[in-house]
Design a protein around this nucleic acid. Structure first.
Length: 133
RNA sequence: UCAACGGGUUGUUCUAUCGCCAUUCGCCUGCGAAGGGAGGAAAGUCCGGGCAACACAGAGCAUCCUGCUUCCUAACGGGAAGGACACCGGCUUAAGCCAGUGUACGGAAAGUGCCACAGAAAACAAACUACCCCCGGAUGGUGAAAACCUGAAGAGGGAAAAGGUGAAAACGCGAGGUAAAAGCUCACGGCAAUGUAUGGUGACAUACAUUGCGGUAAACCCCAGGAGUUGAAAGGCCAAAUAAGCUGAUGAUUAAGGGCUGCUCGUCCUUGGGCCGCCUCCGGCGGAACGCAUCAGCGGGUAGGUCGUUAGAGCCUGUCAGCAAUGGCAGGACCAGAUAAAUGAUAGAAGCUCAGUUUACUGAGAACAGAACCCGGCUUACAGACCCGUUAUUUUA
RNA sequence: CGGGAUGUAGCGUAGCCCGGUAUCGCGUCAGCAUGGGGUGCUGGAGGUCGCAGGUUCGAAUCCUGCCAUCCCGA
């Protein structure tokens, strides 16, 4: 279950445009999260893109480090905190995790904050689900 | 021995769990196994190539780049060896010799420009102070007088030798020369150009002769050599798409219905016609428009796959040639290939550095930094370890 | 990945080609004017010219190498 294959990454340019034009967003430091509901291929609950801006981190090596830490945290915890409620409510979502911190954060810190991002998404979609019902 | 500086080499290792990327194999269509997965700078994009598309008779102009010599190289603005100059050090009584570092190092005797302030003057011209010559004769002195001596201001000319200045003052210094002067002449010396001789592949060196003497060409410029343009978003193939509409050009001449046919095109038959001009006017001829086809532009659609693309001017080992850069020969291995972009995370152990306790533990740290078509350089960043060189100190001989 | 431009007082700029004095406006400070403030007038302060080398007697300007910011190319 701890996988991170190509189907789980957001690569299509069209979907990306749609996400950033029409998606909703919230901020949990150090993440800016943009999300949008969309019909995706079978067996795929969420597609995610991880963004670390070049403007804040000049060196490619630093950007790589942050992206790897975020990706690892996402990979280890999505099965436990993200997928169950999506399966229940039959939503499929596009997700963008933008890193807006100014310094290179430790893995532990990123892990903690990512969990609260998942919690917030849970809350948002629980409310939306109720409205549809 | 311990510091500082410079250069070179290296750039922690292993295990477990969970993941990512491509390759090969197996079962047969998403799983398993195997072995592999960032750098010396992958960086800056400063040069040079390969490769690709387009352009191209030949020559010149403009623009840009390079600039001691020989060699290396696919090529270079790179490298090696050497020459010249400058700086610094050592030895020597000295001449000089040796070692190191640096140099955009063609031409200032083709021409033009510039050299602030200061200074007489920044290289033409002119002439401030002082100097000299020729006029000039104020004033003063001697004397009884004639006269003699003194010679200021001023006018004309000579000179660039002396002078404060300045980064730099007409090559330096001595002698002759002259009214005073001037490489004007001479001796010695410095730098440069040309010629001859000798040595060297050559830059150049040495000797002799002649000629010349401010700097600046990273000022314009002159000389010699070189440069076609655009870059993998190059380019090839496949799939999908190129609809409707608008504008322009060209071509044929039509429109409607029916037959042949599974459909389209095409062909045959029947019927019918508006506008303008001309003529021999119930008719005929010509033209434009509508409509049709093709092409181009706008608009609209698509924005995926695959090749290029990783076996190479490459790497490792040995050997030969060469002062060296480098090259030849022989043997060996196959060593990242992503594309919104893999190469990771966590835990533990060993080794290294630092700190604290103390002789074995605890805590902290481990640089610069991430391939994107591929090579050769250059430049810049870099903790620690090791090696080499220079300088200084101390000790011993 | 490939091109290009710009860094000058707190802010916005001129000067750079063709080297010697760093300019202007806003702001700021002091004075005058006003009962006081604004407006106005007068005067002043404030600069590693992005950084480091080189050429030159002398560099914001010329040359070389870095750093930062911005803009293009589907």
């Amino acid at each position: 279950m701890y996988t991170f294959k190509k189907e789980e990454r957001l690569c299509s340019k069209k979907l990306l445009d749609e996400l950033f034009n029409n998606g909703s967003s919230f901020l949990i430091y150090p993440f800016r999260v943009v999300y949008l509901s969309e019909i995706l291929p079978e067996g795929c609950l969420a597609q995610v893109v991880i963004v670390v801006p070049k403007r804040r981190f000049k060196r490619a090596h630093d950007r790589n480090l942050i992206k790897r830490r975020i990706r690892e945290a996402y990979r280890l915890h999505k099965g436990e905190f993200l997928y169950p409620f999506l399966q229940e409510s039959k939503w499929q979502i596009l997700l963008s995790l933008q890193y807006v911190g100014k310094e290179i954060a430790e893995y532990k810190f990123i892990e903690k904050k990512l969990l609260s991002v998942f919690k917030q998404l849970n809350k948002v979609y629980a409310e939306a689900g109720n409205k549809i019902d």
